[in-house]
Amino acid sequence: MNSIYLEMQDVLDQLETALREKRALSLVRVGDGENIVMSQEAVWPIEQVLQERWAIKANLGQKGLRLPNLKMRDEVAASLQRATIVGVLPRGDSTIKAPDHLKRPLTDMVFAHYGITPALTCHACVNRELVQVPRFWQILAGKRVLLVTRELEQLQAALMKEPYHLDIVNARSFDNYDQMDETLEWIQSQRDEFDIALFSCGVNAVILAERTAALTGTVAIDFGKANNMILKGRAN
Rank of each mutant, 00 (worst) to 15 (best):
N2A: 08
S3W: 10
I4M: 09
E7C: 00
L19I: 02
K22H: 14
V37R: 03
Q40C: 07
Q40F: 08
Q48I: 10
G61N: 12
L67H: 10
N69A: 11
K71H: 09
V76I: 14
V76M: 08
S79D: 06
Q81A: 14
T84L: 00
V86A: 00
G87W: 01
G87C: 04
S94T: 15
D100N: 13
L102I: 00
K103R: 08
K103F: 00
L106S: 03
L106Y: 06
T107Y: 07
D108E: 15
A112R: 10
P118R: 03
L120Y: 04
A124N: 06
N127V: 14
N127W: 11
E129W: 10
P134G: 04
P134M: 04
P134D: 01
I139R: 00
L140F: 09
V148R: 02
T149V: 11
R150N: 15
E151T: 13
Q156D: 14
Q156T: 13
A157D: 08
L166R: 03
D167A: 06
F174E: 07
D175R: 14
N176I: 08
T183Q: 06
L184K: 02
E185F: 06
I187H: 00
D192C: 12
I196P: 14
F199I: 09
V203Q: 07
N204S: 15
V206H: 01
L208T: 11
A209K: 01
A214I: 10
T218P: 02
F223P: 11
F223R: 09
F223V: 12
N228L: 14
K232E: 13
